[in-house]
């Protein structure tokens, strides 16, 4: 524990120019506030309660969570993220008077496809998923013109798939899970189309634009509540859902689907056989860290192998402990330079 504190004090030194200013800000009253990814939210709750006992977690999605962390008055102490912070977000933090971001890597989280447990098996590939959820698809037969996707039934995606209407309940815009799904599954699937593979090489922005998801009812944004989405799946048996592996484990009455022939388990997520995997992060600011001892305690807890390491509490909750779990770095928002932290 002392080691952690020393390290934190040490990492505060390079950003000394803004520390006095940030330190002058009063410690906000009330519980520690956490915003961001719904994937990270439950871990934040557990860790916060173990470290301090008073935390309020808001599932705003990764992008909104990071924005809140750097917003005026720094209303939240932590932002949970299902991806790494982007350079433009770092820049916005600099504009929001946050000089240094602190990044903690929590572990690996799978993105899994689920359905009501009474449904017939639906084994999808990345290409299937692309053909089902992309807003536009090539006309086909050598014609690369992108046309609105009119496919309504899985059987029309691939003849071997069952006769079942396409309805995918997935995370909304701003969700890192959605971005990861597009990146890992939809983009991969699109590449299987020769037209789009060529487009990616020749005009990447146009290619990325072609990966937008449908808005005609085949894809349904579920909002931030995984519980509601999970329950909806039990009421709409034809639908499939996109969940983080962590949440999927918690839902009753649902079963996970294999993707590209691999069933998602802690082992297949950890060893990379299951390909829909992203990393989970927790962000705070150096100012919060130095100003509020509770924040420091939580950071310490998140770096504790007993929590994030193999066999730890978070892995028991579904987070897969990667090699980098517990790794931390400081990001200078002005320059974007980062400084790894020792354990």
């Amino acid at each position: 524990m002392i080691g952690i504190l020393l390290s934190l004090l040490a990492l505060a030194a390079p950003a000394g120019t803004d520390l006095p200013e940030e330190a002058a800000a009063p410690v906000p009253p009330g519980p520690i506030r956490v915003a961001g990814s719904s994937t990270v939210a439950p871990f934040a709750l557990v860790v916060a309660s173990s470290a301090d006992g008073h935390a309020v977690v808001s599932q705003t999605g990764t992008t909104a969570g990071l924005a809140a962390l750097c917003a005026e008055g720094q209303p939240v102490a932590f932002a949970g993220a299902s991806r790494q912070v982007r350079p433009e977000e770092v820049t916005r933090c600099a504009e929001g008077s946050v000089a240094t971001l602190v990044e903690l890597e929590l572990g690996l989280d799978g993105i899994v496809l689920v359905q009501g447990e009474k449904q017939r098996e639906l084994s999808l590939t990345a290409h299937d998923l692309y053909r089902a959820v992309a807003r536009t698809v090539p006309l086909g037969d050598g014609n690369c013109r992108l046309v609105p996707n009119r496919v309504r039934n899985w059987r029309d995606v691939r003849a071997a798939l069952p006769d079942r209407p396409i309805m995918v309940l997935g995370p909304p815009q701003g969700s890192a899970t959605r971005e990861a799904l597009i990146e890992l599954a939809v983009r991969t699937g699109a590449r299987a189309e020769p037209c789009l593979a060529a487009l990616e090489r020749e005009d990447e922005p146009a290619f990325l634009d072609s990966l937008r998801l449908r808005d005609d009812g085949a894809w349904v944004d579920t909002g931030g509540s995984d519980g509601a989405a999970a329950y909806a799946l039990t009421r709409m048996p034809d639908a499939i859902g996109i969940f983080s592996f962590v949440h999927a484990l918690k839902q009753e009455g649902l079963e996970t689907l294999s993707f590209d022939g691999v069933h998602p388990t802690a082992a297949t997520v950890a060893d990379g056989r299951y390909t829909l995997v992203r990393r989970a992060y927790l962000y705070t600011t150096a100012g919060q860290l130095t100003r509020d001892p509770r924040v420091m305690r939580m950071v310490g807890a998140f770096r504790d192998p007993a929590l994030v390491g193999p066999g730890g509490v978070l892995t028991a909750m579904g987070l897969v402990a990667g090699e980098e779990a517990g790794r931390a770095r400081l990001i200078d928002t002005a320059t974007g330079e980062d400084t790894p932290l020792r354990r």
């Binding site: 705003t60 924005a67 917003a71 909304p172 349904v220 944004d221 909002g223 931030g224 909806a232």
Partner: peptide, 24 residues
Amino acid sequence: SAALDRYLVVGMGTDALPQSHALI
């Protein structure tokens, strides 16, 4: 002190809540 609240009200009221209600 209500900065976060404003932020979250605007964010959730615009996206998460309408989406979840639409799901319902």
